[in-house]
C-alpha cells in the first residue's frame, strides 16, 4: 500500500476519491438549490447565535464601558464609537443565559437601527458565513419569554446548533430604550 502510493497509482484509493467527489458533487448541487442566509455568528452564554450580517455595521474589540447609573441590567455601559456615545448591551440575562466573564476574545457587534446604533456584547465572534436554511427549525415552544420572542429558530451548520436571532425585532423592542 505504502509502496503503491509512492508509485502513484493505487487504484483503490483513486476509485475511492472519485466516488467521494461524485457524491460530494451531488450534495453540492442539492445545497445550491437551498436557501442561504449570510449571517454573523457569535457566542452568547456558551451557545452560538447568529443574525443576518447586513444588520451588523461593524465588529470591535470591547473598549472601556462606562456604567450608566440606574438603567436596566442589560445596558452594561456606554462606549465611544468614533465620537458617538453608544450603549453596549449584554443580552445574556435578557435571554436567561449564563454569563461567563468576557475574555480577550470578547467582541462587540455594532448594529444600527433607524433611530440608534447599539453594541451587542459577545463572548466571541466566529465570523460571517452563509447558513443553509435547509435545516432550519422554528423556535422551540418551551423557551422562556424573551427567547421565544426574539429567536426565530435554530439551524444546524457544520455540526453546530445555531440560534437565529430576530435582530430587527430586537432592535425595535421598546425595552431597549430608556426614557421617553
Amino acid at each position: 500500500m505504502e509502496e503503491a502510493k509512492k508509485a502513484g497509482y493505487d487504484i483503490h484509493s483513486i476509485l475511492h476519491e472519485m466516488r467521494e467527489e461524485y457524491w460530494h458533487g451531488l450534495a453540492e448541487v442539492d445545497e445550491v438549490q437551498d436557501e442561504y442566509l449570510e449571517c454573523v455568528s457569535f457566542s452568547l452564554g456558551g451557545e452560538i447565535y447568529a443574525f443576518e450580517s447586513v444588520c451588523a455595521a461593524e465588529i470591535v474589540r470591547i473598549p472601556k464601558l462606562v456604567k450608566v447609573p440606574r438603567v436596566p441590567e442589560i445596558i452594561v455601559g456606554v462606549f465611544n464609537l468614533r465620537g458617538q456615545i453608544t450603549a453596549a448591551m449584554d443580552f445574556r440575562p435578557f435571554f436567561g443565559l449564563p454569563q461567563p466573564p468576557l475574555t480577550s476574545a470578547g467582541r462587540i457587534i455594532v448594529v444600527r437601527s433607524e433611530k440608534f446604533a447599539m453594541g451587542i456584547l459577545t463572548e466571541a465572534v466566529h465570523g460571517v458565513e452563509a447558513l443553509s436554511l435547509g435545516s432550519f427549525e422554528s423556535v422551540v415552544k418551551s423557551l422562556p419569554g424573551a427567547q421565544r420572542e426574539y429567536i426565530r429558530g435554530q439551524l444546524h451548520h457544520g455540526g453546530r446548533l445555531i440560534m437565529l436571532l430576530d435582530i430587527v425585532k430586537l432592535l425595535s423592542s421598546p425595552e431597549l430604550v430608556v426614557g421617553q
Binding site: 473598549p63 472601556k64 462606562v66 450608566v68 447609573p69 440606574r70 438603567v71 445596558i75 456606554v78 462606549f79 465611544n80 465620537g83 458617538q84 456615545i85 453608544t86 450603549a87 433611530k115 440608534f116 446604533a117 447599539m118 431597549l176 430604550v177 430608556v178 426614557g179 421617553q180
Partner: peptide, 24 residues
C-alpha cells in the same frame, strides 16, 4: 454629546463627553 437614541433620558445624567484618552 447625547447618550444616543437608546438612552433618551436617564435620571442623574445629562449627557456624555469624551475624555482625552478616548473614553466617555
Amino acid at each position: 454629546k447625547g447618550l444616543g437614541g437608546q438612552l433618551r433620558s436617564v435620571k442623574y445624567i445629562f449627557g456624555a463627553t469624551i475624555l482625552g484618552d478616548g473614553n466617555p
